[in-house]
């Protein structure tokens, strides 16, 4: 286990380095510096700005100093908002993104799995049809469409929830719903098919033959074994919920990192784009690692080793 974790951490660092390098050189390949605008700067001012941000140095010096910054968790200053560091930008946006993302994860687990169980237990009867219909809709309709339609119906027409902001709990309802919609459906489908496959297994017949109560059969024998594939997807789910927040935060005007990211793209705030990309990448890799470790704890059959199938 420790070797495995070390191996994974090494791989993560390698990946992160690749991403830092890629983003750094991509951003520097963009024609025009960060201070090119319609209003021409006096050459002295431009030179002073370049010197202040170290842009007059050769590119490899800039690269090394940026790499050093990343290693010391300092993502540098924003080019568009003077005096604001990328760390501050992330720190202000993170709570919002984390709150909505976490609530969405809870939704996925608390709604998706029970929906799948209900469908599997009532195979080919109306609850199954209903769940599968909802799940198909949830998988097929893009989150931004769901979000706008929800906004139109519940915020504009019915006025039950505010159209923007997170002032009270009602503000969370629509963003969390729109964010988790796809994954609730996905997990419901996965739970259903995995549970149906488990029901065919011999040990389920044995459990029934032993005269166990239905609840015991379902929870102790059926569910435990069928949740393995569901737990596997939770890592990518967390990753996707967090990146999915680009659109949701944009539509519901939530001041999270996703919106900050989109804003810095439209502002061409290169250091912000780089910093947030790297932050995202690191956060996602850590989360996927945690889920993989949990997965091994939950399922004793899984032996952690360096190579993944």
């Amino acid at each position: 286990m420790p070797t495995y974790i070390l191996q994974r951490l090494g791989m993560m660092l390698l990946t992160l380095w690749a991403i830092v390098t890629l983003t750094f050189f991509l951003m520097h390949a963009v024609p025009g510096g960060p201070f090119v605008s319609e209003r021409m700067l006096a050459p002295e001012i431009a030179a002073a700005l370049n010197a202040k941000y170290g842009l007059d140095q050769p590119i490899w010096v800039q690269y090394l100093s940026y790499l050093k910054g990343v290693l010391t968790l300092d993502l540098g200053p924003s080019f568009k908002y003077p005096g604001v560091s990328i760390n501050t930008m992330i720190a202000t946006g993170l709570p919002v993104t984390l709150q909505t993302g976490l609530l969405a994860v809870i939704c996925v687990v608390a709604l998706g799995i029970p929906m799948g169980i209900v469908a599997a237990l009532n195979r080919n009867r109306w609850p199954d049809t209903a769940v599968m219909m909802i799940a198909t809709i949830g998988v097929a309709i893009p989150s931004y469409v769901i979000a706008t339609v929800l906004l139109y119906v519940f915020a504009l027409r019915l006025g039950w929830v505010p159209t923007f902001g997170l002032d009270d709990w009602r503000g969370y309802v629509l963003p969390v719903f729109a964010l988790s919609g796809f994954w609730v459906s996905f997990v419901a489908r996965l739970t259903r098919s995995s549970l149906l496959e488990t029901f065919e297994q011999d040990y389920m017949t044995t459990a029934r033959a032993k005269g166990l109560r239905p609840g015991q059969i379902l929870f102790k024998h059926g569910l435990r074994n069928s949740l393995v594939p569901v737990v596997t997807v939770l890592g990518p789910v967390v990753a996707n919920l967090i990146t999915g927040s680009f659109v949701i935060e944009q539509i519901f005007a939530l001041p999270g990192i996703g919106r900050q990211f989109v804003l810095s793209i439209t502002n061409r705030d290169y250091t912000a784009i780089m910093g947030i990309t790297i932050f995202y990448a690191a956060a996602l890799m850590v989360m996927i690692l945690i889920v993989d470790l949990l997965y091994a704890v939950l399922d004793p059959r899984i032996k952690l080793s360096g190579a993944r199938a």
């Binding site: 791989m11 390698l14 990946t15 690749a18 991403i19 890629l22 983003t23 991509l26 951003m27 390949a29 963009v30 990753a239 996707n240 990146t243 680009f246 990211f261 793209i265 061409r268 784009i273 990309t277 995202y280 990448a281 996602l284 890799m285 996927i288």
Partner: peptide
């Protein structure tokens, strides 16, 4: 496969956003 793993660790949308900026 290491290369593939590096590429797929990061959600596709992030890459696409990055490339679109460039």
């Amino acid at each position: 496969m290491r290369i593939v793993e590096i590429i797929s660790t990061i959600p596709l949308t992030l890459y696409v956003v990055l490339l679109m900026v460039v």
